[in-house]
């Protein structure tokens, strides 16, 4: 099965590292995976997004025109990408920052107060990992343990950061 996930938000919200962690985790599970960042002029003006495709088969295109899952970390992304989601897909909204009314009835909306939970945890910068944790739980795309492993690989020597991120991941995972 081929599943495409799009992560979008402001630059600095850790959107790219969410995608990277997921891609790395999928690789660790032996799945086929592609990660495609938006680049160049597309990412000027403070927005960032990336697409992760996970599949048991070869992946034809790393581009997602209609992703199964979309994670919107801010208001503009929520507005921009809500119409891209495939019917029956999941739409993860960072409800701490997104107020948009979602008019589509054919998708499931998952509201995650990522910034608030992160602040409560005492690490406001880890809102992305709260969201990723919630996403892993709701989507079942990869195992939580694989994501934790991937964080260890990506952050390697930064022990403290791994600890904070792992805590946030668990907190997000346990929201649902």
């Amino acid at each position: 099965m081929l599943i495409k996930t799009l992560f979008a938000g402001f630059g600095g919200q850790g959107v790219m590292s969410m995608g990277l962690s997921l891609a790395e985790a999928a690789m660790l599970e032996g799945k086929n995976v592609t990660y495609l960042p938006a680049y160049g002029a597309e990412v000027r003006g403070g927005t960032a997004n990336c697409t992760v495709a996970v599949s048991d088969d070869e992946i034809a295109s790393p581009v997602a025109s209609s992703p199964e899952f979309v994670i919107a970390m801010n208001q503009p992304s929520a507005v921009k990408f809500q119409h891209h989601i495939q019917s029956g897909g999941l739409f993860f909204l960072n409800s701490s920052l997104v107020e948009a009314d979602i008019i589509r009835g054919d998708i499931e909306i998952v509201r995650v107060p990522a910034n608030k939970v992160a602040e409560d945890l005492g690490s406001p910068k880890s809102a992305n990992m709260i969201m990723l944790g919630a996403f892993i739980k709701k989507s079942g795309l990869v195992e939580l343990q694989s994501v934790i492993e991937s964080l260890k690989r990506i952050l390697s020597t930064k022990k403290k950061l791994i600890e904070i991120n792992e805590k946030a991941l668990n907190a997000g995972y346990n929201l649902f």
């Binding site: 891609a23 995976v33 592609t34 990660y35 495609l36 680049y39």
Partner: peptide
């Protein structure tokens, strides 16, 4: 091409 250059894969 641009996609091959930018995309990440194992």
């Amino acid at each position: 091409d641009g996609v091959l250059g930018q995309m990440m894969e194992p």
